[in-house]
């Protein structure tokens, strides 16, 4: 017995050494594996130009009535995110029911486990690749962006929705059932009103994320502000990069604020 205690003490006392070695090895492997190219000679100069551009943005690009200016494209970006999130929220509902585990079910359940796996797969499938695939189908432009956001967001919204379903209070459902209501009555009178605010709140949260991704989807040709941004970076038009960055920062901040305020009221 005493030896056993000693052994445990030994393990407890020295296991950190093992962990330290593992972590250290991981870092050595990573640092050796990466080929640090070293800074290009022009790096300092480029950084300086970027900074200069950021502080001297090209204001004339803000609005020129062509429809290709910052103002129009920022709104196009928001439209992509909004529409994509909306479509995704609707598509996510059946996925949520697929993946949600009923209260007294086992941890492994064929329906819910398979649903959860599908959601992981969708979440992992890079949004950028989806955008490129949809460009093949509908041509370059913001519609492809909408489709990419719609499908990719299912991965996260489906997961959040199904967790909300798993954790919801089933009391009001029981009450409707005991009053002689059918399954459909339970769903409409108890489940929906209980779960909707949570679904809405998650959808808004996902919208905040979609705004960020819609602003870069243009880099592969799926509409929004990303296209002129990448073009400006590649042509080293730093004052235009500056104004676009400002535009994105203001847009994201404003949306986060508005959406955050609504979400606080919902829950």
């Amino acid at each position: 017995m005493t030896e056993n205690v000693k052994k445990q003490n030994f393990w407890a006392r020295y296991s950190w050494i093992m962990w330290a070695v593992i972590v250290l090895a991981f870092y050595v492997w990573s640092i050796n594996g990466l080929q640090f190219s070293g800074l290009q000679e022009s790096a300092a100069e480029v950084s300086k130009s970027i900074m200069h551009g950021l502080f001297h943005p090209e204001w004339s690009y803000f609005y020129d009535g062509s429809g290709e200016d910052l103002f129009s494209l920022i709104f196009q970006t928001l439209a992509i995110a909004f529409l994509g999130t909306f479509v995704s929220a609707i598509l996510s509902i059946p996925f949520a029911f697929w993946a949600a585990r009923a209260p007294r079910e086992n941890k492994f359940h064929l329906r819910s486990t398979s649903g959860k796996f599908i959601l992981v797969f969708i979440r992992t499938f890079p949004e950028l690749v989806l955008a490129i695939m949809f460009i093949k189908a509908v041509g370059p432009g913001s519609f492809a962006g909408v489709l990419a956001v719609s499908i990719h967001s299912i991965g996260m919204l489906g997961k959040l929705f199904s967790e909300a379903l798993e954790n919801m209070d089933r009391g009001s459902e029981e009450a409707i059932q005991s009053a002689g209501g059918s399954k459909a009555d339970m769903w409409v009178l108890a489940t929906m009103p209980t779960i909707m605010p949570e679904f809405l709140s998650y959808t808004l949260y996902r919208f905040e994320i979609a705004v960020r991704s819609a602003s870069i989807l243009g880099m592969v040709g799926a509409g929004g502000i990303g296209t002129p941004l990448l073009f400006a970076i590649q042509t080293r038009n730093w004052s235009r990069v500056g104004i676009i960055l400002l535009g994105i920062i203001v847009m994201v901040t404003a949306i986060d604020f508005i959406s955050g305020t609504i979400r606080k009221k919902l829950v």
């Binding site: 990466l34 870069i216 920062i249």
Partner: peptide
């Protein structure tokens, strides 16, 4: 507020193509 790919585009411009 800055999305990851946007940062990547900027850093590629500054330090050049590659893992850095």
């Amino acid at each position: 507020t800055l999305p990851d790919l946007l940062l990547a585009a900027l850093f590629v411009a500054v330090v050049g193509i590659g893992a850095t």
